[in-house]
């Protein structure tokens, strides 16, 4: 399906991913009830860093140019404020961070560039450090993950990437294509299903997605899978009827398998501006989200929106997408994420 050069790249990445797994000696995901592994191997960290390098480079070089001579004054703080705003951190978060820096500067706590950077790192890390419970994967008879989000954020691609991660943990997966509306959506997931060699349960065009989900649960029971991932249609949070539709999917799933869905993951495009917060808020109210997946962090988007969403909603960020390939999905780790953002 991919053109030749892309095919080649995929193969390379596949082998790279295997290497990483070997090197780090443990997988990215844990289904044991324990804190997520803090050390996941240097390779993973460097991959994340390279994925985020554009972010990092532009920020860091800007930080260096703003605070070049090390002396702080009000103008420089304002320039710093600008930097954060350009990173899509949003007005509220930015103001608080800058006020914090200003206070520290007035108190004589911060004098050098390094001080400021360190302080910011700690502060943002604080923002992002929620108790991240491991992904709920060891449910009996199987775990159900519901994927939701607005249009075009990368739900289907993320579904495929997550499946690939689980397969590396020897989990038997099954996919459900609940997007019976968008042209080609079912086919898109089916193509991924073929590539990953997993069953894709699908409905007819314009069939009630909830009934497709129900069918998915039924099939998953029969085929004794470990994880069932339900991909849904993209919907704007402002479309009341479509939000009702996805609530219905969730309700039907729970009826078919009490306790399910065990995870409801919302996929968010990192190039989105401040509206991402509102989106997450509405989806969370409707579905009680268990986690977020932030995609397209490999572009030029700065990921600042992550901080704002995290702060407002206290929902853990499960994964970040740092590339187009099936292996470019990473476990979210606040320390490393922040480190990658500010490391020189």
């Amino acid at each position: 399906m991919f053109s030749k050069w892309r095919k080649k790249k995929t193969d390379q990445l596949d082998s790279l991913a295997e290497e990483i797994a070997k090197e780090s000696g443990e997988s990215l995901l844990s289904d044991k009830k324990e804190e997520p592994s803090a050390k996941e191997g240097a390779s993973w960290a460097s991959r994340l860093t390279s994925g985020l390098s554009r972010t990092r480079n532009s920020w860091v070089s800007s930080i260096a140019s703003v605070f070049g001579d090390g002396k702080l004054d009000e103008d420089k703080l304002e320039e710093f404020e600008d930097l954060l705003l350009q990173g899509d951190l949003g007005v509220e978060v930015t103001m608080e961070l800058v006020d914090h820096l200003r206070q520290g500067w007035k108190d004589g706590k911060y004098k050098t560039v390094a001080d400021i950077q360190e302080s910011l790192k700690t502060k943002i890390q604080e923002e992002l450090t929620l108790k991240i419970s491991p992904l709920n994967l060891s449910e009996s008879p199987f775990a159900v993950i519901l994927m939701v989000g607005i249009n075009g954020v990368g739900k289907t691609t993320t579904t495929a990437k997550i499946t690939s991660l689980f397969q590396k943990l020897d989990k038997k997966c099954m996919l459900v294509a609940c997007d019976t509306f968008r042209a080609g959506a079912v086919k898109q997931l089916e193509t991924w299903g073929e590539r990953l060699d997993v069953t894709v349960v699908k409905g007819k065009e314009n069939e009630d997605p909830a009934s497709v989900a129900f069918e998915g649960i039924k099939r998953a029971k029969q085929e004794k899978v470990d994880i069932l991932i339900i991909d849904t249609a993209g919907r704007l949070h402002t479309q009341v009827n479509l939000m009702e539709e996805v609530k219905k999917i969730s309700r039907v799933v729970e009826k078919a398998l009490p306790g399910a869905p065990h995870e409801t993951l919302m996929v968010i495009d990192s190039t989105t501006g401040q509206n991402a917060i509102e989106q997450a808020k509405v989806f969370n109210e409707a579905l009680d989200l268990s986690g977020l997946v932030v995609t397209k962090l490999d572009g030029t988007a700065k990921g600042g929106v992550v901080v704002a969403i995290h702060r407002q909603l206290q929902i853990p960020i499960r994964f970040i997408g740092v590339g187009e390939q099936v292996n470019d999905l990473q476990n979210f780790n606040p320390e490393e994420f922040t480190e990658a953002l500010f490391a020189i």
Partner: peptide
């Protein structure tokens, strides 16, 4: 020609 099923969608 890259995204799976993009042709079908069009």
């Amino acid at each position: 020609v890259y995204r799976p099923a993009a042709v079908d969608q069009l």
